[in-house]
Simulated assay, not measured.
Amino acid sequence: MHIVRYRREHDATARVGVRVDGVVRELTAPSVAALLHESVADIRDLVAAPGDVVDDARLLAPVDGGTEVWAAGVTYLRSREARMEESSEADIYGRVYDAARPELFFKSAAWRVVVDGEPVAIRADSGLDVPEPELALVINRFGEVAGYLVSNDMSSRSIEGENPLYLPQAKVYAGACALSAGIRPAWEVDGSDLTVSVRVTREGVAVWSGATSTARLKRPYAELVDYLFRADNFPDGAVLSTGTGLAPAMDFTLRPDDVVTITIDGVGELTNPVVVGKEHFDFQRP
Rank of each mutant, 00 (worst) to 15 (best):
V63T: 09
D64P: 10
L60G: 05
D55M: 12
G51L: 07
L60I: 00
A90N: 02
V69D: 10
A100S: 14
A49R: 15
V96F: 01
A61P: 05
E86R: 06
A71M: 11
V53Y: 11
D52K: 13
R95Y: 04
L46C: 08
V74M: 06
R78N: 14
E85P: 11
E103H: 11
I92Y: 05
A99D: 15
V69E: 06
M84H: 02
A57W: 02
A57S: 00
W70K: 09
E81W: 01
E81T: 07
L104V: 03
T75E: 12
K107D: 09
F105M: 06
Y93Q: 02
R58L: 11
G73N: 07
A71R: 00
Y93A: 04
R95E: 00
E89C: 10
R101N: 13
T75F: 03
A82K: 03
G51A: 08
S88M: 11
R78C: 01
R80G: 00
G73W: 01
V96C: 01
D52F: 05
E103R: 07
V47Y: 10
P50M: 07
L60A: 10
D56P: 07
G66F: 13
A57V: 08
V53T: 15
A99Q: 05
K107A: 03
P62N: 10
D98V: 12
F106G: 05
S108Q: 13
E68D: 14
P62A: 09
T67I: 01
A100F: 15
A109R: 15
L59H: 02
R58H: 12
I92H: 00
